[in-house]
Simulated assay, not measured.
Amino acid sequence: MSKILENLMILIVEDENEVRKLMQDVMTGEFANVITAQNGDEGLKKFKKYNPDIVVTDIAMPISDGLEMAMHIKEISKDTPVVVLSAYSEKERLLKAIDVGVDKYIMKPIDMDEFLTTLEHVAKSKIETTNIIEVAKGYTFNKTKRVLIKDGVEIPLTKKELAFISLLIKRLGALVLHDEIKNVVWVGESVSEAAIRTFVKRVRDKVGNDFVKNIPGLGYKIDVNL
């Protein structure tokens, strides 16, 4: 397993069932979480729901194609890498992919070893360009090491706590709803509102009560104006 990919979530959007299943099986051994979708419309909904670190998509799909989806994703989060797969080689599609801002364009059939290497390069490039984030006064987040730092000291966080803080940082200053927190932190698990409150209290004990702000009945956000 790649050290670069092992803590990341990937969204695979592919309408061919066998290809999607094969990619899911391979990626499950490399990424922390693997989410799949069958078309661009479903892919965009799952992007908004799960907030993945990398998106891999086919182009020609029913309902909504991969480039249309990629355009909407880049409008939401321009720093999220989008890798496009296609059996097509027309100049028009390549130019449109460039206009949309996709990070890589890979032709089918796919060599999985080369593909994983490409994903590592894409992930590494993203990490290097957005390495240290100033979160709030006295707080920074190192995206390479995936650690929260307060006044120069690393704060030890569990995997779920890190997923929670990482989500709030990706939406820095904005409200993150309870449902999105559940979907990202407790992937595939059932969790009660009471359990979430207890969890957040434990996080606050570590990071500071004022750092994570509660919006009653809705969700949480990071107070960037500390």
Results as ranks from 00 to 15, higher is better:
K21Y: 02
L177W: 06
A194E: 10
K96Y: 10
I98R: 05
V135K: 07
M27L: 09
G43Q: 07
A123C: 02
D25M: 12
E193H: 11
G40V: 02
V191E: 05
S190G: 12
F47H: 12
L95I: 15
D179N: 13
T129V: 05
V122Q: 00
K150Y: 04
Y88W: 07
E42D: 15
I181V: 13
G219C: 08
I133M: 06
E6R: 09
I181W: 03
K49I: 11
T140Y: 00
K48V: 13
V56K: 04
D58F: 08
A32M: 10
S190N: 13
Q24R: 10
N51R: 14
S192H: 07
E92P: 06
T36S: 07
S89L: 05
V135H: 02
D111P: 07
L172P: 00
S125C: 08
E30M: 06
P156C: 09
E134R: 12
Y220A: 03
T198G: 09
S190A: 13
S2T: 15
K160E: 10
K160S: 05
G208Q: 06
M107G: 13
M9A: 14
V122I: 03
V200G: 04
E16T: 03
A136I: 02
K143F: 08
N131H: 14
T28W: 05
E42T: 13
L226R: 03
I4S: 11
K124W: 14
N209K: 15
I149W: 04
A32R: 14
H121T: 10
N7E: 08
V147F: 02
V153I: 15
A136W: 01
R197A: 12
G40C: 03
A60L: 14
K49P: 07
A70Y: 11
E128R: 05
T198F: 05
D99E: 15
L85F: 14
L119E: 03
L218K: 15
V100H: 09
G66D: 13
E14V: 00
E189A: 11
M9K: 14
V176F: 02
